[in-house]
Design a binder for these strands. Structure first.
Lengths: 239, 239
DNA sequence: CTCGGTTTGTTCTCGCGTTCACAAACTCCT
DNA sequence: AGGAGTTTGTGAACGCGAGAACAAACCGAG
Protein backbone atom coordinates (compact mmCIF):
# COMPACT_ATOMS: atom_id res chain seq x y z
CA UNK A 1 0.00 0.00 0.00
CA UNK A 2 3.01 2.28 0.26
CA UNK A 3 3.00 3.91 -3.10
CA UNK A 4 4.13 7.15 -1.58
CA UNK A 5 7.35 7.43 -3.51
CA UNK A 6 6.20 5.24 -6.35
CA UNK A 7 3.84 7.80 -7.76
CA UNK A 8 5.59 7.27 -11.02
CA UNK A 9 4.84 9.54 -13.91
CA UNK A 10 3.99 6.62 -16.15
CA UNK A 11 0.79 8.21 -17.33
CA UNK A 12 1.34 11.58 -18.91
CA UNK A 13 -1.49 13.73 -17.67
CA UNK A 14 -3.16 12.03 -14.73
CA UNK A 15 -2.86 14.10 -11.61
CA UNK A 16 -1.58 12.24 -8.61
CA UNK A 17 -3.26 13.62 -5.50
CA UNK A 18 -6.82 14.58 -6.13
CA UNK A 19 -8.49 15.97 -3.00
CA UNK A 20 -11.21 13.80 -1.57
CA UNK A 21 -13.79 16.54 -1.88
CA UNK A 22 -13.03 16.77 -5.58
CA UNK A 23 -13.26 13.01 -6.05
CA UNK A 24 -16.73 13.10 -4.54
CA UNK A 25 -17.82 15.67 -7.12
CA UNK A 26 -16.34 14.09 -10.22
CA UNK A 27 -19.26 11.66 -10.60
CA UNK A 28 -21.63 14.61 -10.50
CA UNK A 29 -19.74 16.32 -13.28
CA UNK A 30 -19.67 13.10 -15.25
CA UNK A 31 -23.42 12.74 -15.05
CA UNK A 32 -23.96 16.34 -16.08
CA UNK A 33 -21.67 15.82 -19.07
CA UNK A 34 -23.54 12.70 -20.11
CA UNK A 35 -26.78 14.64 -20.01
CA UNK A 36 -25.31 17.49 -22.03
CA UNK A 37 -23.91 15.04 -24.55
CA UNK A 38 -27.27 13.36 -24.97
CA UNK A 39 -28.82 16.75 -25.57
CA UNK A 40 -26.40 17.24 -28.43
CA UNK A 41 -24.22 19.85 -26.75
CA UNK A 42 -20.73 19.71 -28.19
CA UNK A 43 -18.94 22.20 -25.95
CA UNK A 44 -19.76 23.96 -22.72
CA UNK A 45 -18.25 26.60 -20.51
CA UNK A 46 -17.36 26.04 -16.88
CA UNK A 47 -20.33 28.21 -15.99
CA UNK A 48 -22.78 26.05 -17.92
CA UNK A 49 -21.41 22.84 -16.54
CA UNK A 50 -21.36 24.25 -13.05
CA UNK A 51 -25.05 25.10 -13.27
CA UNK A 52 -25.85 21.64 -14.58
CA UNK A 53 -23.89 20.09 -11.74
CA UNK A 54 -25.22 22.44 -9.10
CA UNK A 55 -21.87 23.86 -7.99
CA UNK A 56 -19.87 27.06 -8.14
CA UNK A 57 -18.01 27.57 -11.42
CA UNK A 58 -14.75 28.47 -9.70
CA UNK A 59 -14.89 25.25 -7.74
CA UNK A 60 -15.61 23.32 -10.88
CA UNK A 61 -12.62 24.78 -12.67
CA UNK A 62 -10.35 24.07 -9.76
CA UNK A 63 -11.62 20.53 -9.54
CA UNK A 64 -11.02 19.94 -13.24
CA UNK A 65 -7.58 21.48 -12.99
CA UNK A 66 -6.53 18.58 -10.77
CA UNK A 67 -7.11 16.24 -13.70
CA UNK A 68 -5.15 18.34 -16.17
CA UNK A 69 -5.83 21.11 -18.65
CA UNK A 70 -8.65 19.71 -20.68
CA UNK A 71 -10.34 22.98 -21.54
CA UNK A 72 -9.62 25.71 -24.07
CA UNK A 73 -9.43 29.26 -22.89
CA UNK A 74 -11.93 31.52 -24.50
CA UNK A 75 -13.95 28.49 -25.63
CA UNK A 76 -14.74 26.03 -22.88
CA UNK A 77 -14.68 22.27 -22.68
CA UNK A 78 -15.38 19.66 -25.33
CA UNK A 79 -18.20 17.71 -23.74
CA UNK A 80 -17.35 14.25 -25.01
CA UNK A 81 -13.65 14.66 -24.47
CA UNK A 82 -14.01 15.89 -20.90
CA UNK A 83 -16.57 13.19 -20.24
CA UNK A 84 -14.11 10.54 -21.29
CA UNK A 85 -11.30 12.05 -19.27
CA UNK A 86 -13.37 12.12 -16.09
CA UNK A 87 -14.64 8.60 -16.69
CA UNK A 88 -11.06 7.44 -17.12
CA UNK A 89 -9.94 9.24 -13.99
CA UNK A 90 -12.73 7.70 -11.94
CA UNK A 91 -12.06 4.35 -13.50
CA UNK A 92 -15.42 3.63 -15.10
CA UNK A 93 -14.35 3.32 -18.70
CA UNK A 94 -15.30 -0.31 -18.35
CA UNK A 95 -17.45 -2.16 -15.86
CA UNK A 96 -16.57 -3.16 -12.32
CA UNK A 97 -18.08 -6.42 -11.10
CA UNK A 98 -20.25 -5.97 -8.02
CA UNK A 99 -21.98 -8.37 -5.63
CA UNK A 100 -25.06 -7.45 -3.65
CA UNK A 101 -25.67 -9.23 -0.35
CA UNK A 102 -29.11 -9.10 1.25
CA UNK A 103 -31.93 -9.33 -1.27
CA UNK A 104 -34.76 -7.87 0.74
CA UNK A 105 -36.76 -4.91 -0.43
CA UNK A 106 -33.75 -2.69 -0.70
CA UNK A 107 -31.51 -5.30 -2.28
CA UNK A 108 -34.09 -5.98 -4.94
CA UNK A 109 -34.44 -2.29 -5.63
CA UNK A 110 -30.69 -2.01 -6.03
CA UNK A 111 -30.52 -5.05 -8.29
CA UNK A 112 -33.17 -3.53 -10.52
CA UNK A 113 -31.45 -0.16 -10.66
CA UNK A 114 -30.74 0.41 -14.32
CA UNK A 115 -28.05 2.94 -13.59
CA UNK A 116 -25.66 0.21 -12.61
CA UNK A 117 -24.62 -0.97 -16.02
CA UNK A 118 -24.77 2.39 -17.68
CA UNK A 119 -22.48 3.95 -15.12
CA UNK A 120 -19.60 1.55 -14.89
CA UNK A 121 -20.84 -1.39 -12.84
CA UNK A 122 -22.14 -4.90 -13.45
CA UNK A 123 -24.01 -6.97 -10.88
CA UNK A 124 -22.46 -10.42 -11.03
CA UNK A 125 -24.29 -11.99 -8.11
CA UNK A 126 -27.13 -11.57 -5.65
CA UNK A 127 -26.59 -13.35 -2.35
CA UNK A 128 -28.82 -13.94 0.62
CA UNK A 129 -28.49 -16.03 3.74
CA UNK A 130 -32.20 -16.88 3.81
CA UNK A 131 -32.88 -20.17 1.89
CA UNK A 132 -36.45 -19.00 1.29
CA UNK A 133 -35.12 -16.47 -1.16
CA UNK A 134 -32.87 -18.81 -3.10
CA UNK A 135 -35.52 -19.70 -5.62
CA UNK A 136 -36.12 -16.15 -6.67
CA UNK A 137 -34.84 -14.48 -9.79
CA UNK A 138 -34.35 -10.75 -9.36
CA UNK A 139 -33.50 -8.51 -12.29
CA UNK A 140 -32.70 -11.61 -14.31
CA UNK A 141 -30.16 -12.86 -11.80
CA UNK A 142 -30.50 -15.94 -9.58
CA UNK A 143 -30.40 -15.30 -5.86
CA UNK A 144 -27.67 -17.54 -4.49
CA UNK A 145 -26.70 -18.65 -0.97
CA UNK A 146 -24.37 -16.34 0.87
CA UNK A 147 -21.88 -19.20 1.05
CA UNK A 148 -21.26 -18.77 -2.67
CA UNK A 149 -19.54 -15.46 -2.00
CA UNK A 150 -16.02 -16.80 -2.00
CA UNK A 151 -16.36 -18.71 -5.26
CA UNK A 152 -18.05 -15.84 -7.05
CA UNK A 153 -15.65 -13.25 -5.74
CA UNK A 154 -12.75 -15.33 -6.95
CA UNK A 155 -14.20 -16.19 -10.35
CA UNK A 156 -15.14 -12.62 -11.17
CA UNK A 157 -12.34 -10.84 -9.32
CA UNK A 158 -14.91 -8.85 -7.41
CA UNK A 159 -13.47 -5.85 -5.60
CA UNK A 160 -16.68 -4.02 -4.69
CA UNK A 161 -19.45 -5.35 -2.45
CA UNK A 162 -22.82 -3.89 -1.51
CA UNK A 163 -24.41 -4.73 1.83
CA UNK A 164 -28.19 -4.44 1.98
CA UNK A 165 -28.83 -6.76 4.92
CA UNK A 166 -30.39 -6.00 8.29
CA UNK A 167 -28.06 -4.25 10.69
CA UNK A 168 -27.33 -7.29 12.79
CA UNK A 169 -25.92 -9.23 9.83
CA UNK A 170 -23.89 -6.45 8.30
CA UNK A 171 -20.69 -6.89 10.27
CA UNK A 172 -20.55 -10.60 9.52
CA UNK A 173 -21.10 -9.97 5.85
CA UNK A 174 -18.38 -7.34 5.84
CA UNK A 175 -15.95 -9.72 7.52
CA UNK A 176 -16.63 -12.38 4.93
CA UNK A 177 -16.28 -9.89 2.12
CA UNK A 178 -12.92 -8.74 3.41
CA UNK A 179 -11.82 -12.35 3.73
CA UNK A 180 -12.75 -12.87 0.07
CA UNK A 181 -10.55 -10.02 -1.06
CA UNK A 182 -13.19 -7.34 -1.45
CA UNK A 183 -11.62 -3.98 -0.66
CA UNK A 184 -14.49 -1.55 -1.23
CA UNK A 185 -17.84 -1.79 0.51
CA UNK A 186 -21.01 0.21 0.09
CA UNK A 187 -23.04 -0.26 3.24
CA UNK A 188 -26.77 0.35 3.37
CA UNK A 189 -27.23 -1.29 6.76
CA UNK A 190 -27.69 1.16 9.61
CA UNK A 191 -24.63 0.16 11.57
CA UNK A 192 -20.97 1.07 11.91
CA UNK A 193 -18.70 -1.41 10.15
CA UNK A 194 -15.35 -2.41 11.52
CA UNK A 195 -12.91 -3.20 8.72
CA UNK A 196 -9.13 -3.13 8.12
CA UNK A 197 -7.65 0.21 7.19
CA UNK A 198 -7.04 -0.76 3.57
CA UNK A 199 -10.73 -1.40 2.98
CA UNK A 200 -12.86 1.55 1.91
CA UNK A 201 -16.35 1.76 3.32
CA UNK A 202 -19.01 4.23 2.30
CA UNK A 203 -22.31 4.23 4.07
CA UNK A 204 -25.73 5.25 2.86
CA UNK A 205 -28.18 5.70 5.67
CA UNK A 206 -31.74 6.78 5.10
CA UNK A 207 -32.64 7.67 8.64
CA UNK A 208 -29.48 9.68 9.17
CA UNK A 209 -30.24 11.76 6.12
CA UNK A 210 -33.78 12.32 7.31
CA UNK A 211 -32.62 13.27 10.76
CA UNK A 212 -30.25 15.84 9.35
CA UNK A 213 -33.17 17.31 7.44
CA UNK A 214 -35.27 17.19 10.59
CA UNK A 215 -32.69 19.20 12.48
CA UNK A 216 -32.76 22.02 9.96
CA UNK A 217 -36.51 21.76 9.61
CA UNK A 218 -36.88 22.19 13.34
CA UNK A 219 -34.74 25.30 13.18
CA UNK A 220 -36.87 26.73 10.40
CA UNK A 221 -40.21 26.13 12.06
CA UNK A 222 -38.91 27.31 15.40
CA UNK A 223 -37.82 30.54 13.84
CA UNK A 224 -41.22 32.07 14.32
CA UNK A 225 -42.71 29.90 16.97
CA UNK A 226 -41.97 26.64 18.62
CA UNK A 227 -44.53 24.06 17.81
CA UNK A 228 -46.23 22.45 14.86
CA UNK A 229 -45.23 19.31 16.69
CA UNK A 230 -46.39 19.75 20.24
CA UNK A 231 -45.60 21.76 23.28
CA UNK A 232 -44.34 19.03 25.58
CA UNK A 233 -40.76 19.96 25.07
CA UNK A 234 -39.86 21.60 28.33
CA UNK A 235 -36.47 20.82 29.63
CA UNK A 236 -37.34 17.51 31.19
CA UNK A 237 -34.67 17.18 33.80
CA UNK A 238 -34.23 13.49 34.25
CA UNK A 239 -31.64 12.12 36.64
CA UNK B 1 -18.13 27.39 28.50
CA UNK B 2 -20.50 27.73 31.39
CA UNK B 3 -23.50 29.39 29.91
CA UNK B 4 -25.77 27.82 32.47
CA UNK B 5 -27.86 30.93 32.47
CA UNK B 6 -28.84 30.18 28.92
CA UNK B 7 -28.85 26.40 28.74
CA UNK B 8 -31.69 26.28 31.21
CA UNK B 9 -34.00 27.76 28.62
CA UNK B 10 -36.14 25.56 26.45
CA UNK B 11 -35.92 25.97 22.72
CA UNK B 12 -35.07 29.56 21.89
CA UNK B 13 -31.38 29.91 22.47
CA UNK B 14 -30.33 26.47 23.64
CA UNK B 15 -27.65 25.95 21.04
CA UNK B 16 -27.40 28.43 18.28
CA UNK B 17 -24.71 27.52 15.84
CA UNK B 18 -23.97 23.85 15.65
CA UNK B 19 -21.45 23.19 12.85
CA UNK B 20 -22.85 21.31 9.92
CA UNK B 21 -20.27 18.56 10.30
CA UNK B 22 -21.44 18.01 13.85
CA UNK B 23 -25.09 17.93 12.85
CA UNK B 24 -24.30 15.18 10.38
CA UNK B 25 -22.78 13.08 13.15
CA UNK B 26 -25.44 13.54 15.81
CA UNK B 27 -27.69 10.87 14.28
CA UNK B 28 -24.78 8.44 14.42
CA UNK B 29 -24.28 9.15 18.09
CA UNK B 30 -27.99 8.80 18.67
CA UNK B 31 -28.05 5.39 17.08
CA UNK B 32 -25.04 4.24 19.06
CA UNK B 33 -26.71 5.41 22.27
CA UNK B 34 -29.90 3.54 21.43
CA UNK B 35 -27.87 0.38 20.91
CA UNK B 36 -26.02 0.88 24.17
CA UNK B 37 -29.26 1.50 25.98
CA UNK B 38 -30.82 -1.65 24.59
CA UNK B 39 -27.79 -3.55 25.78
CA UNK B 40 -28.47 -2.34 29.29
CA UNK B 41 -25.57 0.09 29.51
CA UNK B 42 -26.41 2.89 31.91
CA UNK B 43 -23.38 5.13 31.49
CA UNK B 44 -20.54 5.34 29.01
CA UNK B 45 -17.37 7.32 28.54
CA UNK B 46 -16.65 9.42 25.48
CA UNK B 47 -14.15 6.78 24.46
CA UNK B 48 -16.71 3.98 24.54
CA UNK B 49 -19.28 5.97 22.67
CA UNK B 50 -16.70 7.10 20.15
CA UNK B 51 -15.80 3.50 19.38
CA UNK B 52 -19.44 2.57 19.01
CA UNK B 53 -19.97 5.48 16.65
CA UNK B 54 -16.75 4.96 14.74
CA UNK B 55 -15.23 8.35 15.42
CA UNK B 56 -12.42 9.95 17.39
CA UNK B 57 -13.22 10.54 21.06
CA UNK B 58 -11.91 14.10 21.01
CA UNK B 59 -14.19 14.88 18.10
CA UNK B 60 -17.10 13.28 19.91
CA UNK B 61 -16.56 15.38 23.01
CA UNK B 62 -16.28 18.54 21.00
CA UNK B 63 -19.45 17.70 19.12
CA UNK B 64 -21.35 17.08 22.32
CA UNK B 65 -20.02 20.27 23.83
CA UNK B 66 -22.00 22.22 21.25
CA UNK B 67 -25.20 20.87 22.76
CA UNK B 68 -24.26 21.71 26.31
CA UNK B 69 -22.55 20.04 29.23
CA UNK B 70 -24.42 16.81 29.51
CA UNK B 71 -21.59 14.67 30.86
CA UNK B 72 -20.01 14.31 34.27
CA UNK B 73 -16.25 14.66 34.57
CA UNK B 74 -14.63 11.59 35.97
CA UNK B 75 -17.72 9.54 35.18
CA UNK B 76 -18.95 9.87 31.64
CA UNK B 77 -22.39 10.25 30.12
CA UNK B 78 -25.73 8.89 31.27
CA UNK B 79 -26.82 6.93 28.22
CA UNK B 80 -30.55 7.57 28.38
CA UNK B 81 -30.16 11.20 29.34
CA UNK B 82 -27.72 11.96 26.54
CA UNK B 83 -29.86 10.01 24.12
CA UNK B 84 -32.83 12.17 24.96
CA UNK B 85 -30.85 15.37 24.69
CA UNK B 86 -29.52 14.49 21.24
CA UNK B 87 -32.95 13.39 20.07
CA UNK B 88 -34.37 16.67 21.28
CA UNK B 89 -31.64 18.64 19.59
CA UNK B 90 -32.18 16.86 16.29
CA UNK B 91 -35.90 17.22 16.71
CA UNK B 92 -36.98 13.59 16.68
CA UNK B 93 -38.57 13.39 20.11
CA UNK B 94 -41.80 13.03 18.21
CA UNK B 95 -42.54 11.93 14.68
CA UNK B 96 -42.27 14.03 11.54
CA UNK B 97 -44.82 13.29 8.85
CA UNK B 98 -43.21 12.26 5.56
CA UNK B 99 -44.54 11.66 2.06
CA UNK B 100 -42.83 9.37 -0.44
CA UNK B 101 -43.29 10.07 -4.13
CA UNK B 102 -42.44 7.40 -6.68
CA UNK B 103 -43.43 3.94 -5.55
CA UNK B 104 -41.21 1.83 -7.77
CA UNK B 105 -38.77 -0.69 -6.41
CA UNK B 106 -36.93 1.87 -4.36
CA UNK B 107 -40.02 3.64 -3.13
CA UNK B 108 -41.46 0.35 -1.93
CA UNK B 109 -38.27 -0.49 -0.18
CA UNK B 110 -38.31 2.86 1.57
CA UNK B 111 -41.97 2.47 2.54
CA UNK B 112 -41.18 -0.88 4.10
CA UNK B 113 -38.16 0.42 5.96
CA UNK B 114 -38.94 -0.20 9.59
CA UNK B 115 -36.41 2.35 10.75
CA UNK B 116 -38.75 5.15 9.79
CA UNK B 117 -41.14 5.02 12.67
CA UNK B 118 -38.58 4.05 15.25
CA UNK B 119 -36.34 6.96 14.39
CA UNK B 120 -38.64 9.91 14.37
CA UNK B 121 -40.60 9.71 11.13
CA UNK B 122 -44.04 8.57 10.01
CA UNK B 123 -44.98 7.86 6.41
CA UNK B 124 -48.33 9.55 5.88
CA UNK B 125 -48.68 8.95 2.16
CA UNK B 126 -47.29 7.08 -0.82
CA UNK B 127 -47.82 8.86 -4.12
CA UNK B 128 -47.23 7.84 -7.70
CA UNK B 129 -48.09 9.39 -11.04
CA UNK B 130 -48.69 6.01 -12.68
CA UNK B 131 -52.39 5.01 -12.40
CA UNK B 132 -51.38 1.37 -12.69
CA UNK B 133 -49.93 1.57 -9.21
CA UNK B 134 -52.89 3.22 -7.56
CA UNK B 135 -54.52 -0.06 -6.57
CA UNK B 136 -51.53 -1.28 -4.65
CA UNK B 137 -51.11 -1.28 -0.90
CA UNK B 138 -47.49 -1.01 0.19
CA UNK B 139 -46.48 -1.39 3.80
CA UNK B 140 -50.11 -1.08 4.76
CA UNK B 141 -50.52 2.25 3.03
CA UNK B 142 -52.60 2.95 -0.09
CA UNK B 143 -50.71 4.26 -3.06
CA UNK B 144 -52.44 7.47 -4.10
CA UNK B 145 -52.28 9.68 -7.19
CA UNK B 146 -49.59 12.29 -7.21
CA UNK B 147 -52.32 14.92 -7.48
CA UNK B 148 -53.24 14.20 -3.87
CA UNK B 149 -49.99 15.75 -2.72
CA UNK B 150 -51.40 19.17 -1.96
CA UNK B 151 -54.31 17.90 0.10
CA UNK B 152 -52.19 15.46 2.06
CA UNK B 153 -49.41 17.95 2.66
CA UNK B 154 -51.91 20.43 3.99
CA UNK B 155 -53.87 18.01 6.15
CA UNK B 156 -50.78 16.53 7.77
CA UNK B 157 -48.58 19.63 7.78
CA UNK B 158 -45.94 17.71 5.91
CA UNK B 159 -42.56 19.42 5.86
CA UNK B 160 -40.38 16.59 4.57
CA UNK B 161 -40.71 14.85 1.23
CA UNK B 162 -38.86 11.91 -0.28
CA UNK B 163 -38.37 11.65 -4.04
CA UNK B 164 -37.88 8.14 -5.40
CA UNK B 165 -38.97 8.72 -8.97
CA UNK B 166 -37.00 8.36 -12.18
CA UNK B 167 -34.62 11.23 -12.86
CA UNK B 168 -36.77 12.89 -15.49
CA UNK B 169 -39.70 13.33 -13.09
CA UNK B 170 -37.72 14.49 -10.08
CA UNK B 171 -37.61 18.22 -10.84
CA UNK B 172 -41.35 18.38 -11.43
CA UNK B 173 -42.01 16.54 -8.21
CA UNK B 174 -39.69 18.86 -6.34
CA UNK B 175 -41.44 21.92 -7.77
CA UNK B 176 -44.80 20.61 -6.68
CA UNK B 177 -43.48 19.76 -3.24
CA UNK B 178 -42.13 23.26 -2.81
CA UNK B 179 -45.43 24.70 -3.95
CA UNK B 180 -47.15 22.62 -1.26
CA UNK B 181 -45.00 24.06 1.48
CA UNK B 182 -42.51 21.24 1.82
CA UNK B 183 -39.16 22.70 2.82
CA UNK B 184 -36.96 19.61 3.18
CA UNK B 185 -36.42 17.09 0.41
CA UNK B 186 -34.55 13.82 0.37
CA UNK B 187 -33.78 13.04 -3.25
CA UNK B 188 -32.97 9.54 -4.46
CA UNK B 189 -33.31 10.41 -8.12
CA UNK B 190 -29.96 10.77 -9.92
CA UNK B 191 -30.36 14.38 -10.88
CA UNK B 192 -29.59 17.84 -9.57
CA UNK B 193 -32.63 19.57 -8.13
CA UNK B 194 -33.25 23.26 -8.51
CA UNK B 195 -35.08 24.65 -5.49
CA UNK B 196 -35.39 27.98 -3.64
CA UNK B 197 -32.68 28.76 -1.15
CA UNK B 198 -34.89 28.18 1.87
CA UNK B 199 -35.52 24.56 0.88
CA UNK B 200 -33.02 21.97 2.08
CA UNK B 201 -32.17 19.15 -0.27
CA UNK B 202 -30.10 16.11 0.54
CA UNK B 203 -29.34 13.61 -2.15
CA UNK B 204 -28.63 9.93 -1.93
CA UNK B 205 -27.10 8.58 -5.07
CA UNK B 206 -26.09 4.98 -5.46
CA UNK B 207 -23.98 5.32 -8.58
CA UNK B 208 -22.09 8.30 -7.22
CA UNK B 209 -21.15 6.36 -4.11
CA UNK B 210 -20.04 3.42 -6.22
CA UNK B 211 -18.01 5.64 -8.50
CA UNK B 212 -16.20 7.15 -5.55
CA UNK B 213 -15.35 3.64 -4.42
CA UNK B 214 -14.26 2.77 -7.94
CA UNK B 215 -11.84 5.68 -8.00
CA UNK B 216 -10.07 4.51 -4.87
CA UNK B 217 -10.26 0.91 -5.98
CA UNK B 218 -8.54 1.82 -9.21
CA UNK B 219 -5.80 3.53 -7.26
CA UNK B 220 -5.30 0.48 -5.09
CA UNK B 221 -5.05 -2.02 -7.90
CA UNK B 222 -2.97 0.32 -9.99
CA UNK B 223 -0.58 0.80 -7.12
CA UNK B 224 2.50 0.19 -9.21
CA UNK B 225 1.45 0.71 -12.77
CA UNK B 226 -1.11 3.10 -14.10
CA UNK B 227 -3.52 2.40 -16.93
CA UNK B 228 -4.81 -1.09 -16.29
CA UNK B 229 -8.03 0.24 -17.71
CA UNK B 230 -7.49 1.21 -21.30
CA UNK B 231 -3.88 0.28 -21.49
CA UNK B 232 -3.22 -3.35 -22.32
CA UNK B 233 -0.03 -2.05 -23.85
CA UNK B 234 1.66 -1.98 -20.53
CA UNK B 235 2.14 -5.34 -18.93
CA UNK B 236 -0.67 -5.53 -16.46
CA UNK B 237 0.96 -6.26 -13.17
CA UNK B 238 -1.74 -7.45 -10.87
CA UNK B 239 0.43 -7.66 -7.83
C1' DC C 1 -11.07 16.62 54.61
C1' DT C 2 -7.51 15.48 51.41
C1' DC C 3 -5.49 13.10 47.74
C1' DG C 4 -5.06 10.35 43.70
C1' DG C 5 -7.34 8.66 39.63
C1' DT C 6 -10.49 9.46 35.97
C1' DT C 7 -13.00 11.86 32.41
C1' DT C 8 -15.05 15.90 30.52
C1' DG C 9 -14.99 20.44 28.23
C1' DT C 10 -12.14 23.74 25.93
C1' DT C 11 -8.23 25.98 23.81
C1' DC C 12 -4.87 25.96 20.34
C1' DT C 13 -2.80 24.72 16.15
C1' DC C 14 -2.73 22.89 11.68
C1' DG C 15 -4.39 21.41 7.26
C1' DC C 16 -8.04 21.18 3.93
C1' DG C 17 -11.54 23.13 1.10
C1' DT C 18 -13.89 27.15 -0.78
C1' DT C 19 -13.98 31.39 -2.99
C1' DC C 20 -12.15 35.55 -5.08
C1' DA C 21 -9.63 37.73 -8.43
C1' DC C 22 -6.70 38.00 -12.26
C1' DA C 23 -3.13 36.83 -15.73
C1' DA C 24 -2.73 33.79 -19.66
C1' DA C 25 -4.60 32.07 -23.73
C1' DC C 26 -7.86 31.51 -27.25
C1' DT C 27 -11.44 33.19 -30.94
C1' DC C 28 -13.52 36.37 -33.80
C1' DC C 29 -14.05 40.58 -36.20
C1' DT C 30 -12.29 44.43 -38.55
C1' DA D 1 -2.31 41.58 -38.25
C1' DG D 2 -4.20 43.52 -34.22
C1' DG D 3 -7.48 44.48 -30.78
C1' DA D 4 -11.70 43.41 -28.28
C1' DG D 5 -14.13 40.04 -25.90
C1' DT D 6 -14.26 35.40 -23.56
C1' DT D 7 -13.00 31.78 -20.75
C1' DT D 8 -9.69 28.86 -18.48
C1' DG D 9 -6.31 27.83 -14.96
C1' DT D 10 -4.26 29.21 -10.68
C1' DG D 11 -2.27 31.99 -6.82
C1' DA D 12 -3.83 33.88 -2.49
C1' DA D 13 -6.93 34.84 1.30
C1' DC D 14 -10.21 33.04 4.32
C1' DG D 15 -13.09 30.08 7.08
C1' DC D 16 -14.15 25.56 8.88
C1' DG D 17 -13.14 21.20 10.81
C1' DA D 18 -9.88 17.66 12.92
C1' DG D 19 -6.95 16.40 16.35
C1' DA D 20 -3.71 17.02 20.29
C1' DA D 21 -3.16 18.61 24.72
C1' DC D 22 -4.50 20.24 29.10
C1' DA D 23 -7.00 22.46 33.00
C1' DA D 24 -11.27 21.85 35.51
C1' DA D 25 -14.42 18.95 37.78
C1' DC D 26 -15.99 14.78 39.80
C1' DC D 27 -15.67 10.22 42.50
C1' DG D 28 -13.99 7.18 45.95
C1' DA D 29 -10.70 5.73 49.44
C1' DG D 30 -8.49 6.53 53.58
Amino acid sequence: MERAAVTARTSPESARDIPEATVARLPVYLRALVTLSEQGTATCSSEELAVAAGVNSAKLRKDLSYLGSYGTRGVGYDVDYLRYQIAREIGVTQDWPVVIVGIGNLGQALANYSGFRSRGFRVVALLDADPARHDAVVAGIDVRPFADLERIAREHSVAIGVIATPAVAAQDVADRMVACGITSILNFAPTVLNVPAEVDVRKVDLSIELQILAYHEQRKTNGAQNGAQDGAREGAQTA
